[in-house]
Design a binder for these strands. Structure first.
Length: 571
DNA sequence: ATGCACTGCGCC
DNA sequence: AAAGGGCGCAGTGCAT
């Protein structure tokens, strides 16, 4: 049984080609033609655990999903791994497609990555040098040979990492990132249960009935706009226009610095209250209203596209539908199918726990060894004031210096020197133009050329350089934490996915599956009778992630888990 | 008509 | 004196 198999689907039709490999990526025997790729893949998975090697999940796995009875166990996603390796090797942002990696290997001109479909620069068809399949291989190149060659080279680059611990962690990152590719493709395929009728009822309550004319302002929103106009003297203006709003308020003698809602909330005038309400409702209408439902949530499922590694910190991004910004109020519409339940689990206070584990600060680790970290922190260092403890720690992690936070930071520095030293060292590295890395070795982007110009000129050109340096310090300070939290979350996803696939079920249609993932929170859609088992699996996966990513640490990463019908009932 | 910068706000 | 990290998306207003 080959431990790895390179896989290339035929661009048209159900077939493909397979090439068994050893762990170093060396071919074991000749390639095989598979007239039915899904059947061949399924048969290979029955024989034993395979790590599938492919150019990218969206081209190799997504088309296969509808035809697979079971989900694949493991993969090595060349595009994602290429990006991790390039950053690790100090070549952040170099093209990462199969064709680009292959061209680098052969010393040929490297094709740029294609812009994402749907993005502004996306303009297919003018590319004659490379095939328009996003792999960016030149016409005539053998995709399977390229996959095999690039994979072997990636394995060589991974093996070349000198430090044993760093190499092991980076390999874990490669496996976890690749597992993320599986999860993302599966979640896009399965979709998040979405009750259009409930969504519609919520919108109608908040905004009034759906306007007959698309784009028209719903009744309650129009009423609010009219009230607002009256409150400001009756002259018509567009409440969506910042400049017109500022002018309308100024005409009544109210000087606003901006139209931000936190500023409006401090203005003692009826119009300010109305405008805040208008903005809240208008946002729901424009961002998650009927047009959104038509575009993204049809057939009982919300189907966004997830972008693994879309954020430099390793967090996921999404394309379309604002998947990672679903307003809390609309979570009412996320309801399990009849006979099914949602298991919703989120990591409590993930980032401060990550800081405690990263820095190995004994004192902070003690506060992170159990339940409420902020409570424990408050009891130890802030005379029981939980708000202060939370504010101070968040400020330390974000690089905040404003407000009354100075004394809190001083307390933290005194009590938790290792933890504060850790983030401050990361900030200094960033201010000096260096790069930092997550626990598993995801490396942050280097400063831009503009940044270097600006900071080098700082002494002569006033404060802009210094301000820019401090901004980069805040970025690297936060990066080490946010990216290490993303490491942990990816490990959690991978472990949870494996555990879900191992649960005994009557058939594929009865299998619990991940339907949502948002930085530190997962949602599993499961047949009701399996919900307890799923909850146990999530808890076990969280502890497994802790051990994998942070090893022997007293810090715990507890989950808040709820088994519910409706997502909105989870909190 | 289309692109871009900017503002503002939803989520973590 | 002020100084909070990361995103996606929609709307305005100006430039082309």
């Amino acid at each position: 049984m080959a431990p790895r198999i390179a896989l290339v689907p035929d661009p048209h039709g159900p077939g493909g080609r397979l090439q068994p490999l050893d762990d170093a990526g060396t071919p074991l025997g000749p390639p095989a033609e598979a007239p039915d790729l899904a059947a061949a893949v399924t048969a290979a998975e029955r024989d034993g655990t395979v790590r599938w090697v492919w150019a990218a999940a969206d081209s190799a796995y997504a088309p296969l999903l509808p035809r697979l009875p079971d989900r694949l166990a493991r993969c090595h996603d060349l595009r994602l791994v290429e990006a991790l390796l390039l950053a690790h090797e100090g070549r952040f942002g170099a093209p990462r497609s199969l064709g680009a990696a292959w061209a680098r290997l052969r010393g040929l001109p490297v094709p740029p990555d294609l812009p994402e479909p749907g993005s502004a620069e996306s303009d297919d068809g003018q590319d004659t040098l490379f095939a328009p399949d996003r792999l960016q291989l030149p016409p005539g190149a053998d995709p399977l040979a390229a996959v095999v060659a690039v994979h072997a080279e990636q394995q060589r680059r991974l093996a070349a990492i000198q430090d044993d611990g760093a190499r092991a962690r980076f390999r874990l990152l490669v496996a976890a990132e690749s597992a993320g590719a599986l999860v993302a493709a599966e979640m896009a395929y399965d979709g998040l249960p979405w009750r259009a009728d409930i969504h519609d009822r919520l919108l109608t309550e908040l905004l009034g009935p759906r306007p007959g004319v698309p784009g028209a302002r719903p009744k309650l929103l129009a009423d609010l706009a009219a009230e607002l106009r009256q409150a400001l003297g009756g002259r018509p203006f567009n409440p969506d226009s910042h400049t017109q709003v500022l002018r309308a308020f100024a005409d009544r003698g109210i000087q606003l610095g901006s139209t931000r809602s936190w500023e409006l909330k401090e203005v003692n005038h009826p119009a300010a209250r109305l405008l805040v309400r208008y903005k809240e409702l208008s946002r729901i209408h424009t961002a998650h209203g009927w047009a959104w439902q038509d575009a993204w949530a049809r057939g009982g499922r919300f189907r966004p596209e997830y972008v693994v590694g879309g954020v430099v910190s390793g967090r996921w991004a999404s394309r379309g539908g604002g998947a990672l910004q679903i307003p809390r109020i609309l979570r009412r519409a996320v309801v399990a199918d009849p006979g099914w339940l949602l298991v919703v689990a989120d990591a409590a206070q993930l980032e401060p726990r990550v800081l405690a584990a990263l820095s190995q600060d004994a004192g902070l680790a003690r506060t992170a060894a159990g339940g409420d970290l902020y409570e424990a922190l408050a009891a130890t260092a802030f005379h029981g004031d939980r708000d202060k403890a939370k504010l101070g720690l968040l400020g330390a992690m974000y690089g905040q210096t404003s407000g009354d936070i100075g004394p809190l930071l001083n307390t933290l520095r005194h009590r938790y020197p290792a933890a504060m030293g850790y983030v401050e060292a990361a900030a200094r590295t960033g201010e000096d133009g260096g790069v930092v890395a997550s626990r598993l070795g995801r490396v942050c982007p280097p400063p831009s050329a503009d940044w270097l110009d600006l900071t080098e000129a700082a002494e002569t050109a006033g404060d802009a350089g210094g301000r820019s340096a401090r901004a980069r310090g805040r970025f690297t300070r936060n990066f080490v934490i946010q990216a290490s939290a993303a490491d942990w979350a990816l490990a959690l996803l991978a472990a949870l996915r494996r555990r879900l696939n191992a649960l005994p079920v009557a058939g594929p249609a009865e299998r619990p599956h991940l339907v949502f993932f948002q930085h530190d929170e997962v949602v599993v859609h499961t047949p009701a009778n399996l919900a307890d088992g799923v909850a146990d699996a999530v808890a076990a996966a969280a502890d497994e992630a802790r051990l994998l990513v942070f090893g022997d640490t007293p810090v715990r990463f507890p989950l808040t888990t709820a088994v519910v019908d409706c997502y909105a009932d989870a909190k």
